[in-house]
Amino acid sequence: MKRFSWFNATSLTLGFVFLYMPMIILVIYSFNASKLVTVWAGFSTKWYVELFHNEDFLAAAVVTLKVAVVSSTFATVLGTMAAYVLVRQGRFHGRTLFSGMIYAPLVMPEVITGLSLLLLFIGIGLDRGIVTIILAHTTFAMCYVSVVVSSRLTTFDHSLEEAALDLGCSPFEAFRLVTLPIIAPAIISGWLLAFTLSLDDLVIASFTSGPSATTLPIKIFSAVRLGVSPEINALSTIMIGIVTVGVVSASLITKRAAVKRARDEQSAERS
């Protein structure tokens, strides 16, 4: 029997109140009519209207999405290649340096990553803008992708690839027909992780962006530095809403797939 005491129930309740209360308060106050964020003056959606008329925020949102889509796609390709090299290619010259360069950015403080990339871009005379942000995001996100993908690569059965090779596949065909479908879920979650990291990043983007390209986090940061702003509350509510819908539906889809798989396996056993 599980012991589920009142103590456990209390700590779960308090824990989730702590985790969710700040965001719920933010959402509530985004519908506040008063500009004073702390005084409730009735329900209103005027901050959303103002937000959608704010050209700066819309432009920044477009830049952010472009950066996130392009950099997470590059990062997924490079990260998957890196994972394949680390797990499947055995020993080669400079392997230690290679794996070091994969793991170091994961623990590197963002201020240092940002600073070092900025100094590189200035050193080679590359104008700062959307391209430099994409380069920076691709670099740190590919390391996260490669960790996610390589953990999947190490756990699956190597003999499946060997069987494909024995049956006459070329190494590339074996990768495409056997390895890729198996590691596909890891690649997708790697892409999602890279995409969120890019959407979220303030520090590295601040170092590597120029006057021609500002991302949403940079805009939000400069707006809230001076205090709470109702427009940012509205923007936050929209972002929280998108993430919630995304995560909840993703988990429902995986749950349904798992149920279906279990049912298929059962009926296969019966027949």
């Binding site: 965001m23 939000i220 709470v228 936050s236 993430v243």
Partner: peptide, 9 residues
């Protein structure tokens, strides 16, 4: 959800 927004909240 955005780290920045969670701090801001």
């Amino acid at each position: 959800t955005s780290f920045l927004i969670r701090v801001y909240s």
